[in-house]
């Protein structure tokens, strides 16, 4: 769910907007290294892809369904900087053109669903990748763990923001337990879907997956002769 207007008080909203702006400034600089002058068209199309996948319903049970948040997925596919730009643009368009997520809460939403999911997701992905063997088949599992971590940390950050600027007196330990508990489940779903999506892309076009670049670089040419 996107944070609406009035959920957090004005000072907290402005503070998160500042954090979001700083994150975006860093991402704008870093994205140039990831996709050079192709930034605008590529990031634009990848943002559209993220928006579209959020419309893709994954049925759970009894008519309910869930969808991707996509932070970790975008970070693994196009790199953390471009990924953050894509998520930011998706959230801005959702807020401005679809009224989904409050305009004053845009900074909060960018922090929660952009900065935290992309940074946490990518760091977890890289960490796992360092431990696992350097094989193409390991990219998708690492991305899945990144996705799980990103969702849980995003929920925990939300509770943290709520503790600072929440408008309703909810006991914090209850909120933390409930939010993290629910989001571990959601995170597992996100992890499974991210795994499946990344695996299907790595199987066809591993060269497009940013997170697979290092693995591709060390891959040697194999000559297999039919017996």
């Amino acid at each position: 769910m996107h944070v609406p207007d009035g959920f957090l008080d004005a000072p907290t909203s402005l503070a998160t907007a500042g954090v979001a702006a700083a994150g975006i400034a860093i991402a704008l600089r870093g994205a140039r290294r990831e996709v050079d002058d192709r930034i605008a068209p590529l990031a634009g199309l990848v943002a559209t892809f993220v928006f579209a996948t959020q419309m893709l319903n994954f049925p759970v049970a009894g008519g309910t369904s869930g969808h991707l948040m996509g932070g970790a997925l975008a970070a693994v596919l196009v790199g953390p900087y471009t990924g953050l730009l894509c998520l930011t643009v998706v959230l801005a368009v959702q807020s401005l053109l679809f009224a989904d997520g409050g305009i004053t809460a845009l900074g909060t939403n960018v922090v929660l669903m952009g900065v935290v999911t992309v940074v946490a997701g990518y760091l977890a992905f890289r960490g796992v990748q360092l431990v696992l063997p350097k094989r193409l088949s390991m990219v998708a599992p690492a991305a899945a763990i990144g996705a799980l971590v990103s969702v849980v940390l995003s929920a925990a950050t939300f509770v943290g923001l709520y503790a600072v600027g929440g408008a309703v007196p909810i006991p914090l330990d209850t909120l933390l337990t409930a939010m993290v508990g629910v989001h571990v489940l959601i995170g597992i779903g996100e992890a499974v879907i991210t795994f499946l999506v990344v695996a299907s892309i790595v199987a066809v076009r591993p060269d497009l997956v940013h997170g697979a670049r290092r693995v591709l670089a060390v891959r040697t040419l194999e000559t297999r002769v039919a017996a």
Partner: peptide, 9 residues
């Protein structure tokens, strides 16, 4: 750049 990305989206 952000506006451009948004434009493409």
């Amino acid at each position: 750049q952000l506006v451009q990305i948004m434009g493409f989206m």
